[in-house]
């Protein structure tokens, strides 16, 4: 364990491909550096897709385990993060499919009811934190997994539109259209359901 800790500290000096080649040479502990570097990004993405903290953590762990197992297949023609988020996307999709989770959709009557029910809770949250960011996060958590994923990949996980297209298995142009649509939905959601909070903040 002590070695793992030291790797986490040391990993700051290594770039991704150096750490990967160390792992591939059999130095398993070097993987701790990669986990440490990407755990927040991967967890944020899985949480936006899966919506439930415990399940998101389980899925995120699964992602890192899979990435380790198939690390030899990472060819280095894209960034490691892009490859990793592709695994996140696939793992989340199969998790959601297995769970047959009720997918929140803006066209869905249900989301409005849920949003209305939860509003009190979020209001308390935002009164406490009084931050626009918390409200944005709350609104994202009400989006459909597809929309939430594309917004998170673009704004939080620092992926370009081309990389997002690769992660989601889309054409670059489709990714662009989907990002526009997701942002429009987020905005609409914030205007209709978080209107009071927006007013409070301004």
């Amino acid at each position: 364990m002590a070695r793992e800790e030291s790797y986490v500290q040391m990993s700051a000096g290594f770039n991704d491909s150096e750490l990967i080649s160390r792992v591939l040479r059999g130095d398993q502990q070097a993987y701790a550096g990669l986990v440490h570097r990407y755990q927040y990004y991967v967890f944020t993405l899985t949480l936006r897709l899966v919506k439930n903290r415990e399940e998101a953590e389980e899925v995120a762990q699964d992602v890192f385990i899979k990435a380790y197992k198939y690390l030899a297949d990472f060819r280095g023609d894209a960034r490691f993060s892009t490859w990793l988020y592709t695994i996140v996307n696939n793992t989340c999709i199969s998790f959601l499919r297995r769970k047959k989770l009720t997918v929140y959709s803006l066209d869905d009557e249900k989301v409005f009811n849920t949003a209305a029910n939860r509003e009190a809770g979020y209001k308390a949250d935002t009164v406490e934190q009084k931050s626009r960011q918390a409200m944005v996060n709350a609104a994202i958590s009400h989006l459909k997994p597809d929309d939430a994923a594309i917004i998170t990949l673009f704004y939080k996980n620092e992926q370009t539109l081309d990389e997002i297209a690769r992660v989601l298995g889309l054409e670059a142009n489709t990714a662009k259209v989907r990002l526009h649509r997701a942002r429009a939905r987020l905005k609409e959601l914030m205007e209709t359901h978080f209107a009071q909070e927006v007013k409070d903040l301004n």
């Binding site: 364990m1 793992e4 986490v8 398993q28 502990q29 993987y31 701790a32 986990v35 440490h36 755990q39 967890f43 953590e57 995120a60 762990q61 890192f64 385990i65 380790y68 197992k69």
Partner: peptide
């Protein structure tokens, strides 16, 4: 989190 992953791998 990272300890769990390292133990698994």
């Amino acid at each position: 989190f990272s300890k769990n992953v390292m133990e698994e791998i």
